[in-house]
Design a protein around this nucleic acid. Sequence first.
DNA 1: GAGTTTGAAACT
DNA 2: CAGTTTCAAACTC
Length: 933
Amino acid sequence: MDSPENVKTSTSIAAATTLPSDSVAAPDSTIFGYISNLSPIKPVKAAPVVPGFPSLNSPPIVFTSPHLNPLCETTYLKRSQCPQLSCEELCQQDISGNKFEIGSNELEKSKTQSSSTLIPCVERIPPECIDKYLADTVEVNCENSAHSANLSLIQSGDDMPQSIKDFTDSKLDDKNDIRQDAEILMGAFPATPELAGQDFQGKSSFNDEPVETDAKQGGSEMPSCECPKVESGLSVEQQCELSVVQHAGAVHEDELGCASQFLPESLQPSQGYEDCSETTGEASNKIADNIVLHDPKGQHYSGMHRRCLRFEEARGNIVENSPGSRGSSNVVTSSSLPANLGDMEVFESSSLEISATSSGRHLINLTQPIISVIPPRNSGNPRSSISKPSGIGLHLNTIVNAKPMSCGASGSMQSAEKGYLNVQDGKLVSNMDCHQPESTKNSSILSNVREKLPVSSEDCSHEAQVSVATSYLPSQSLQIVKSSTDIAPLKQIMPDNTLISLLGSICLLKFSRKKASATNDGDGCKRCNCKKTKCLKLYCDCFAAGIYCAEPCACQGCFNRPEYEDTVLDTRKQIEFRNPLAFAPKIVQGLTDSSANSIGEDGNYSTPSSERHKRGCNCKKSMCVKKYCECYQANVGCSSGCRCEGCKNVYGKKEEYGMTKDVLSEGPVNERFESTFDELEMAASRDGLLQTELCNLDNLIPPTPSFQFSDHGNCAPKSRFSTRRCLPSPESNLTLPKSLETFDNNHDLLLKARKDIQGIDYYCQELDFSNAETVNELSPRYDGLSNICDLSTLPNPPSTAMAYLASSKISDWTTISRAQLCARSGHLSSVSSFHWRGSPITPVAQFGGTKLLGAVESDKKHHDVPEDDTPEILKDTSTPLKAVKVTSPNKKRVSPPHRRLHELGSSSSAGLRSGRKFILCGLCLLSHLYAMH
DNA sequence: GAGTTTGAAACT
DNA sequence: CAGTTTCAAACTC
């Protein structure tokens, strides 16, 4: 069970296991070190038992199933031990400034909880910091910074470019400050030079400057006090390596610009964190706090702190403190803990906060969708996406419904990067792996997210529970993009790489966020009641979701527990062998659905058209209006892939889906898009990889690396997390939906187009920041990203975005898609993969983490899977191993992608050509992983 | 809480 | 691939 003891044990184990890696990694600022840290890759089962499927150790598992993100692997999530505790309560407490208990036990618990349940429990924060922080977000601070490692990042005002300094100085006046954040960020940048791999001001690196990971150092240096909002969270006791960054948020454009400028480039693979705060443009949306603590050593999770912020409260704080400033800065300190998912969250409130801290794992973890993210309906944030019912559990659910927190999006991002940045040797190093127990990591991440999320108490219960991390990323990115102004400065200041990486990280964050919000019962915990399957079959929602069963579960003879990690992993492996997509998210983005995205005429909900159940349902009697129906349960409409009879799915009827499709195809303008759907589908069926890549763009968040593959079957139609659509892969020659071009004049159509475009939104964002600002609106459901893409809103559609959207040229897609897609997938590195088209430097997302990883994994599966992996436990139940069946997208079983390796090579090569660090890192990582296998 | 219904997962 | 069985969630009472 997830009793605290277990958790502890697991954590301790994890720590122990991780130690070696840490030792290696820690010193290593290099990519390898970073990579090595990744638990999934570790040859040894180091993976902390705690977090979910252990497995995560094994890359294959992670990668293999689309469902699982690499992160996920490591993080097979454990459920919160304290499901009972409502998020709300926690949040309230946090908010109230109640002290957090740091007890190791509690910490672990909290970690566990957070990770598993995603329920936002109060994060533990060093008492000092916490108290102050909570009490007064504004004040948080610098003082505390002493404790917080993060601050160390800030240290360097010295390092900061003069302009920046000036900037900061000029704005010191603001108390609210984002400025402070900016300062922090600036400090951070210097710290992260290597990561950025580029000079902040054209200089090669900041490396020279020592960045101190230690909170102490940071604290000392931080001028900080000036930046009230920024806090560094830090595990006091532990050395918190800084990993963070962030900028807080929302800043006015001016501020934003500055802030943005300061954004660390850390996006690079090595980098772990990035913080970018941006104001989405809404003052209301400021997010005040983000504290992310990472415990470098994992042993101490105390570093992690979570809080659930309420939007209102947060806003209030922010407003009070800095009426003018939109964004609050958030500083995330991460110890080695990857846990910054919380950071990742983006508040829908306008302010963005980006904390790059989260590592890929985190993302993955997030993916584990224990809870479906539900945006607070009452949050008062208009942007907030419509909350959906908790989703389906696991597989389905991993997906989280989170739709669009992003809409509101603002959020602070944490870099989704797998590693969080740590400052070592004066350098920021992102630690891919979390030495920490995965659970902890997860929890931390989640918690962070939670904290940042401005959520009403109500929301807390929902959102908090929901692992928001995944969902937020996009939004964050959106925000960033949105404020073109913000971006512009960034561009000026930031190297393309950095910027790109940043964006990528953002994307990752969002994804992770989505994942996080998987299933929850309302209490944030989904529980199973398995009696015969021992919770080792997909019947078990917990198992299917990649999480361990917990106390709330009423299962009998459960083996889905950390103590049976091996069994769980083996079983999982076996299942994946049989069906690589078994753990893939069931909900994937669909192309377009006319019915989607709006409340039905009849008052029915409609989900983003893009989301559809990957495999489709087969309902005969429930008419898809009951939870028996997976589509309905996931709050997605039925699609052509469904074999349901008498479909009355309020989220979208199968017939409607078909109609929509037809309509889109009919678009006068785009004949070339006519076959888009079919092509996508076919491509998907044909090539798992492509699909994966394409489809998974949206899915990146998805919990598992496999997640990206998940779409094999039907990438086109669905994506769990995001409303986004799958982008056609260049290879597939798929073209954009007709709708995009076709509907220029029709508002409704535009809406649809947006939806369609959502899949592309990243591109848009990435592509052209300058125009981002124009996009302000975010439909509640859609991620800000989509908005960015919104043609109507954009006076000057980003060239890239437009190009993508408008251009029928496949080449464009191909060019961009892959890299960007990869970026989305973000597994390996949100950062690394990020591709900014506009810049000459444009790093190409080389590895789409997804692909590469997936490839490796897939291969692995093919070769490594033992004939009989069936766990002893299950043997009696019979789980025959059979050759993997290849099936059409609609079929349950899908063949694993075969091209992965090939693609890897290509992608990697591309990356090399680009000369980007990311790429290199990615390659190294890949090679490393591959070698391991 | 027990029993029934339902459809996915597993199996043949 | 189709059909059947098993399973656990969803639902009903």
